[in-house]
Computed example of a mutant assay.
Amino acid sequence: MASCLYVVRQWVSGLGQRMSAFQMNLVPLKEPLGFIKVLEWIAAIFSFATCGGFKGKTEILVSCRPNVTENKTVTATFGYPFRLNQASFQSSSNVCGVDWKSHVLVGDYSSSAQFYVTFAVFVFLYCIAALLLYVGYTNLYRDSHKLPMIDFVITVVATFLWLVSTSAWAKALTDIKVATSPRIVQELLPCKQSSTECHFGSVTSMGSLNVSVIFGFLNMILWGGNAWFVYKETSLHSPSNTSASHGQGGAVPPPGM
């Protein structure tokens, strides 16, 4: 029992010494393993920034009969996390005697948007940790059998989650565009009354949200491509090199064989 405790203490002590031996090595950043990780880090920033920072509004023009030539603007403001069913219409006064604050846009797309942004933030943090490991503890990473394997599993899972989260967010974005389009004029109850006449005004451009979807699929491609370079660092790929080196280091066959 005492000998086992001694071995454990020695192992923990050795691991602590190796972890504390931080040595800056920028060579991994010049290799595909580190260079692609930097690209993944940058792409993750664009992903959650373009989606999480969006603010927009949609406007409709309302006129009261019989004076239909005088239009007044009614606005609904929306943004991340895109709970449109909580985005009520606002106006300077009760246009045509309607309490517009009691009327909202249609749909709740917060689950897809929050899943996408939250995952992008986690990826951003993981890229920082991985780059710190690559650059500061290069020898520890490459001498260990577990760290490259963990990195490989996370890379594969992240590739799949980028596909799922981006696809869900792309579908939600399509629905958001429909819910804030001229279609709202047909769905608002006050616009169906004989005393009011509604026309669609405008909606904020959603170009940044389109960019977020593009970066989501770009992240999926980057992580999928990087999986090969991470795999090369694992023990699943190294045995072939090990066996080859053993074969070269074996007994030299006699001449003429």
Rank of each mutant, 00 (worst) to 15 (best):
Val8Glu: 13
Arg183Trp: 12
Leu209Met: 02
Ser235His: 14
Phe48Tyr: 13
Thr50Arg: 02
Pro253Ile: 02
His246Lys: 14
Gln186Asp: 09
Ala244His: 07
Ala76Thr: 05
Val62Gly: 01
Gly224Leu: 04
Gly250His: 11
Leu5Asn: 04
Lys177Met: 09
Ser47His: 03
Val74Phe: 02
Glu197Pro: 02
Ala120Tyr: 00
Pro182Cys: 08
Gly225Tyr: 10
Ala130Arg: 10
Gly34Met: 04
Tyr137His: 13
Val27Gly: 13
Pro255Cys: 13
Ala130Gln: 15
Val38Ala: 04
Ala76Lys: 00
Ala172Gly: 05
Ile45Lys: 10
Phe22Ser: 15
Leu125Asn: 10
Tyr141Asp: 01
Gln114Glu: 12
Ser235Ile: 15
Cys198Met: 02
Pro28Leu: 09
Cys96Asn: 01
Gly14Ile: 14
Val104Asp: 03
Gly14Pro: 02
Gly34Leu: 04
Leu15Ser: 13
Val38Pro: 00
Thr234Met: 04
Phe217Val: 09
Thr159Gly: 08
Gln186Phe: 13
Tyr126Gly: 03
Gly224Phe: 05
Ser194Asp: 12
Gly201Cys: 07
Trp162Asp: 03
Pro66Asn: 05
Leu15Phe: 15
Tyr126Ser: 06
Thr77Met: 13
Thr77Glu: 11
Lys101Tyr: 05
Val153Ile: 13
Ser205Glu: 06
Gly225Met: 07
Thr242Cys: 06
Pro253Arg: 05
Phe119Cys: 02
Ser165Arg: 00
Thr166Leu: 13
Trp223Ala: 01
Gly207Gln: 07
Leu131Gln: 03
Phe115Glu: 12
Val135Trp: 05
Glu40His: 07
Glu233Met: 05
Leu131Cys: 05
Val230Asp: 00
Thr159Ala: 14
Pro148Lys: 08
Val7Ile: 14
Val121Gln: 10
Ser167Phe: 00
Leu161Asn: 14
Pro239Val: 07
Thr58Cys: 04
Val123Asn: 07
Trp228Lys: 08
Trp162Phe: 08
Val156Met: 03
Pro66Cys: 03
Tyr137Ala: 06
Leu125Gln: 13
Ala113Arg: 01
Lys192Trp: 13
Leu39Ser: 00
Tyr116Ser: 06
Val38Lys: 00
Leu132Trp: 09
Glu197Thr: 05
Ser63Ile: 12
Leu209Ile: 05
Leu163Lys: 07
Leu26Ile: 11
Gly107Cys: 08
Ala76Gln: 00
His199Asp: 10
Val157Met: 15
Ile214Phe: 10
Val185Tyr: 04
Ser165Lys: 06
Leu105Asp: 00
Arg18His: 11
Ser194Ala: 09
His145Asp: 15
Phe54Val: 01
Trp223Cys: 05
Thr180His: 04
Asp151Phe: 13
Cys198Tyr: 01
Ala227Pro: 05
